[in-house]
């Protein structure tokens, strides 16, 4: 089973999320895929993935953000799975698991 690399960029200001995930992609080895947590749907990143041999699945997750000790607000965050299309076993696994 492929190894998941988790990266949570939901508290980073733009363009740090983009920089962090590109950094991680450059270190990703065969047999690995990335699970990225973000507060936005990062369209510039998705464009980059489309154009550079990667596939992804982006979906939303409902969660609550604490804004003080007493209250919280509902918020939607994004979970983006990223893998290389060239890594055939990971590609096959991710297509089955996430699509």
């Amino acid at each position: 089973m492929p190894k998941e690399l988790l990266i949570d960029v939901s508290e980073y200001e733009a363009p740090q999320p983009f920089e962090e995930v590109i950094q991680l992609l450059s270190q990703m080895k065969a047999g690995e895929y990335i699970r990225m947590l973000h507060r936005k749907k990062p369209l510039p990143l998705l464009q980059f993935l489309n154009e550079n041999g990667y596939d992804y699945k982006a979906g939303t997750v409902q969660n609550k953000i604490d804004i003080s000790e007493e209250s919280s607000i509902d918020s939607v965050s994004w979970e983006i799975m990223i893998w290389s299309k060239k890594d055939s076993s990971v590609n096959e696994y991710c297509l089955n698991a996430f699509k």
Binding site: Y12, E13, I73, V76
Partner: peptide
């Protein structure tokens, strides 16, 4: 504002 200052949406 949410993008560059990481505020709630």
């Amino acid at each position: 504002i949410p993008m560059f200052f990481v505020t709630p949406e």
